[in-house]
Simulated scan of single mutants.
Amino acid sequence: MAEHYITSKELISTLKISSQELITIEQFFDAIPDDEWELLEGKDYRVVAGNGLREYTTPGAYTLARYLDATQKQGFWEVIKEWFSHRKREVRRAFVRKKILDNCSSLVKRNDIFFVSRSDVVAIFGTKPSYLKKMSEIAQRAEQPLLKGQDYDEFIDEGGLHYSLAGIDKLSQVLKTSLTKKNRREWCTDVGEVIRPQVKDIVDQIIKRDKGIQKAICKVKRDNDNTCQVTGKKPDKVNNFKIAAHHLYSRNSYPHLADVDKNLITLTCEVHEQFHQYMGGYGKPCTIDDFIKFVEQYYPSSNQVVICLNDQKRVLGNPEPVNQRKPHVLYLPVSRVL
């Protein structure tokens, strides 16, 4: 794990000393080299480019605390020790949350309970399938055992065994008592404590993204005056048809562009249906190049649309499709988590 640093500002706040006191102490340490009290740049602290202030490593901060304990009063050492302990824990939890975020694509809500696949749980805990199975068997015999339907379940349509957030918490309790290495015990403990709030934040983001997509669709329809950009048709009292908003880079293959209005074009439902039949069905991935070819073939007189599409293509760049076999959790359809 990377070295932890405490800034001068944080050090002043933590030790409850003034900025002038810290400057005086630093000047004292720098005045006489190779004496009892010494701070070495690169080992005990680093100087931040731009403001010239110091950020102290754990040994450097401890040295300052020992000096204050020796010259003023007791207690500075314990304060600094607690600060670094807390910072280390917060940094570790940040890594745990990132691990959950990157290995939670199987997230699904069933009977008002969130579940995650066994393979994702293995990755989150950083263990092996065989060891997780062993821990699961122990957890089923615990005082508060794993219960089917509440803590785990088999979902044939989702690929098999899944654990709920409560089940993951119970597994973390078993793992932290079974593991011998301190860092592994701490990691698994944090997984149990972090999993619920992290999944809540993930679900909130999925819902927010879905709302963003709907907002982009409404904006494009409004900006285009509810008019088909290929045929120029617009609903009226006589022809009361609906206008669709088509994703030029398909929503499933390019989910990061799903809420970008430049990735949307308004079409009559008839033209929209015709394009997807041309592509082989609504489930087939498509790009802006596919749509340009479609317009050139079936609506060759719509030259202005092709010019606009080429302009939009330059704006959107050359996006890469996501991994369809394991999409990122933030790109899951909102229906999975509601």
Rank of each mutant, 00 (worst) to 15 (best):
L101T: 02
H86Y: 13
I32H: 03
A61Q: 06
G60F: 07
N51C: 07
W37D: 00
R110I: 01
R118V: 15
F114V: 05
A49N: 12
D44K: 03
G126V: 11
D44H: 11
C104E: 10
V121L: 07
F28R: 10
K88Q: 13
P129L: 10
A31H: 14
F115Y: 09
A123G: 15
V121S: 02
K73N: 13
E90I: 14
T57Q: 06
F84R: 00
Q72P: 09
P33M: 10
R110E: 05
E36A: 06
L101D: 03
N51H: 11
Y56R: 04
Y56M: 05
E82Y: 09
E36F: 12
D35Q: 09
R92P: 00
A94K: 15
E78C: 05
L64D: 04
N103S: 15
I100Y: 10
F76N: 01
S119Y: 13
R110F: 06
D120P: 13
W83K: 01
E26M: 09
K99E: 11
K99F: 12
K81M: 15
G42Y: 12
D34N: 03
T58M: 15
K73M: 13
E82R: 14
D102C: 12
A70I: 03
I80V: 10
L22C: 05
P59D: 01
T71R: 09
T24K: 04
D35N: 03
R54H: 10
H86E: 13
F115W: 12
D44I: 04
E26P: 00
V47F: 06
A123S: 14
L107H: 07
K43L: 07
E41L: 09
Q72F: 12
R87S: 02
K81E: 14
G126F: 15
G52N: 11
F76I: 02
Y67M: 02
L68S: 04
W83M: 02
